Simulated assay, not measured.
Amino acid sequence: MSDAAIHPIRFVLSDMDGTLLRPDHLPSQRTLDTVRALRDAGVFFSLASGRPPKAMLQMVEAFGIDIPVAGFNGGTLVNPDGSVLVAHHLPAEAALITLALFSAEPDVEVWLFADGEWLRRDPPGPMVAVEAAGLGYGPLVVESFEPYLDRVDKIVAASHNTQLLVELEALLQPKVQGLAHASRSQPIYLDVTALKANKGEALKTLAAHLGVPLEQTAAIGDGGNDPAMFAVAGLSIAMGQAEEVVKQQANVVTGTNREDGAAEAIEHFVLNR
């Protein structure tokens, strides 16, 4: 049993896509009401996402969040006014290794995030429309990623070939060991970020910022980038549609995002204690 069985939860950190948001990238009214009830109860609530911070702003407003949120898998923590609290950039060496590996795969679309922008080099593939629908904006086309290598927030390999991304993750990890972290935020996305750009570090930083002990925190997520925060949270909750390896690293499993599983877990484990 986690410490959360003894200690009341004072801070909830949640993933967005696949967790708070339904497949249409919108929250249900039940989820909005549950988060509002959390805040009314004096429980801090924030977001941790693989998205760029500017693609989180709509949900920050929708949920009435008034504390920092974590974008780029925890690589950039921003205040509600958009000012940066913490930023971790990918080392240039790791960026070059990653780009070389991803660019050799014809079934992979390679994207780079820097300077608050989503950048691509190649002609748009089918994954661009998927990402644009989620982010709410499209990429900038650049001739080269080289001018941005000293300030990369995230590199993404996007593909409908999910098995290929699993294989690329296994190939990349030893090549960037000690330099970067690679994880699949969703089955179709393989994200590469700085070592400290993970949701576990984000949870620790935000909890310290709020003055909340880690045993009084809860983390909710569904992707391969979420167990990093499961490992440090007092209570960890996996979504019902998460891969089995993600579920195994959580204290409890709730319903799917189609079933408002995040709201269900907050109601049961936080509000109704």
Rank of each mutant, 00 (worst) to 15 (best):
I6F: 13
S236W: 05
T76K: 15
V12H: 07
L172M: 07
M56L: 14
F11K: 00
E259C: 05
V142F: 08
T162K: 13
A129R: 10
L38A: 01
V212I: 06
G211A: 04
E264R: 14
Q163L: 13
D222L: 09
A194D: 14
P213R: 03
V84Q: 02
H7W: 11
V60S: 02
F45S: 00
H88C: 11
K196R: 14
G200D: 01
Y148H: 10
A194T: 07
V176Q: 00
K175C: 11
A4Y: 03
T254R: 02
H25P: 12
N198T: 03
N198Q: 10
G261S: 05
V35W: 01
R30I: 10
R121P: 07
E143G: 15
A242G: 04
L20V: 07
D15S: 09
G75L: 06
M59K: 07
G223L: 08
D33T: 12
A62D: 10
E201N: 14
A87F: 04
G240N: 07
A233Y: 02
A37D: 10
E117S: 12
V86L: 11
E215N: 14
L195Q: 06
A250Y: 03
V253Q: 03
V176I: 15
H25A: 11
T193S: 12
F45A: 00
M16G: 06
V156C: 12
L32E: 07
I220W: 03
A62S: 11
F44W: 11
S28I: 09
D107M: 03
D66I: 08
D15I: 13
I237S: 00
N272V: 06
L112F: 04
A242L: 02
G223M: 08
P123Q: 02
L47T: 02
G82S: 05
S236C: 07
A197Q: 05
D191N: 05
N73H: 13
G223D: 06
P8N: 07
Y137M: 10
H25R: 08
P27R: 03
D222S: 05
S185A: 05
L101K: 00
V35I: 15
G42P: 08
M127W: 01
E105T: 05
L32M: 10
Q177P: 08
T162I: 15
G64V: 07
D15V: 09
S159K: 09
Q29K: 13
E169I: 11
E244S: 11
G223K: 05
E201P: 05
R120M: 14
F45H: 00
S185W: 04
E109P: 08
N161V: 12
G240C: 03
E105P: 11
D15C: 10
V245A: 12
Q186I: 14
P80L: 03
F63R: 00
A207V: 01
A231G: 09
T76N: 07
A202Q: 02
G211I: 03
A48H: 04
